[in-house]
């Protein structure tokens, strides 16, 4: 691990993303507006239909705040949607050049992924500030500057965890001719089981107790609850340690896949 090289690689990716100015603003605005409209109408309709003031312990402003936070932090956690980068390297033979460099391949790829954090973070902060200006912060939701600051490291660890989780499905590219479906599946599973579609507290009790032992919770649900001030300091620390532990476990699980897989690598063409 060489910090100088990591920062250099990261800054290249960041500069690249900033240089695509049109893409930068279009994805920010369109993504946010569409997501917010969907969440807004969906939850409002559900609350109206049920006639209840809370659903599963969530009020309408509370669940809308959760949805906004998921949407804003999710972009950072997925880090520029580079989850096909490794399989593309394998299929197109670009992996070859990284194998020639005196540094680890995953170090390069994670630095590249991390380079997307800053642009995504800035976009999310800008959109978040705009939403606060227009709608304000609901009084029944304890979002504070401290809770938002506490959420930041959980989001960054979530970013690392998302990268680690996407490594194994992508390494299947050493054997399979297309892993796009696996990537889509991973995204769907992480969104559903990580609380990216709806709060995990709305799941049945038995499902919640299983999900608590899985890594997905640390991708969306945990950072959003931290940002909303719904997590104690002890829970916050425990959550971060557990998510780091999951990063380690997924890294260890990826090792045999990489070792077996790279024996199959042809570098494209004979």
């Amino acid at each position: 691990m060489r910090p100088g090289l990591f920062i250099h690689l990261m800054s290249i990716e960041t500069r690249k993303l900033f240089s695509y100015r049109v893409d930068f603003w279009v994805t920010t605005v369109v993504n946010m507006v569409v997501t917010l409209i969907v969440f807004w109408y969906l939850w409002e309709a559900m609350f109206q239909e049920s006639g209840a003031s809370t659903i599963g312990g969530w009020s309408l402003p509370g669940i809308l705040t959760y949805s906004v936070l998921i949407s804003l932090s999710g972009r950072v956690i997925r880090g520029g949607d580079l989850q096909m980068a490794i399989s593309t390297d394998i299929y197109e033979g670009s992996l070859s050049r990284f194998l020639l460099y005196p540094s680890r391949y995953f170090f390069f790829k994670y630095a590249q992924q991390a380079g997307a954090v800053l642009p995504e973070l800035l976009q999310s902060i800008a959109m978040g500030a705009l939403i606060v200006l227009v709608y304000g912060i609901p009084t029944e939701v304890p979002v504070t500057a401290t809770s938002l600051l506490m959420a930041l490291p959980t989001i960054l660890i979530g970013h690392l965890l998302f990268f680690m989780l996407s490594v194994i499905p992508q390494l299947v590219a050493f054997w399979a001719e297309n892993v796009w479906s696996l990537s889509v599946l991973l995204r769907f599973i992480t969104m559903l089981l990580g609380g990216g579609m709806l709060p995990l507290s709305l799941f049945p009790e038995w499902a919640q107790s299983i999900l608590a032992w899985m890594p997905f919770i640390y991708l969306y649900d945990f950072p959003a609850r931290v940002a909303m001030g719904l997590v104690t300091q002890a829970q916050w620390l425990e959550g971060m340690l557990l998510s780091l532990l999951w990063c380690g476990i997924t890294a260890l699980l990826a090792v045999p896949f990489w070792r077996r897989g790279e024996l199959q690598y042809t570098g494209v063409g004979i």
Partner: peptide, 24 residues
């Protein structure tokens, strides 16, 4: 490899060389 670009397409050569300096 004459048939395969190994440099970073989005970067100017000067930036690629600086990165290689760091890598090596």
């Amino acid at each position: 490899m004459g048939q395969k670009a190994q440099l970073w397409w989005d970067l100017p050569a000067a930036d690629c060389f600086l990165l290689l300096r760091e890598i090596y």
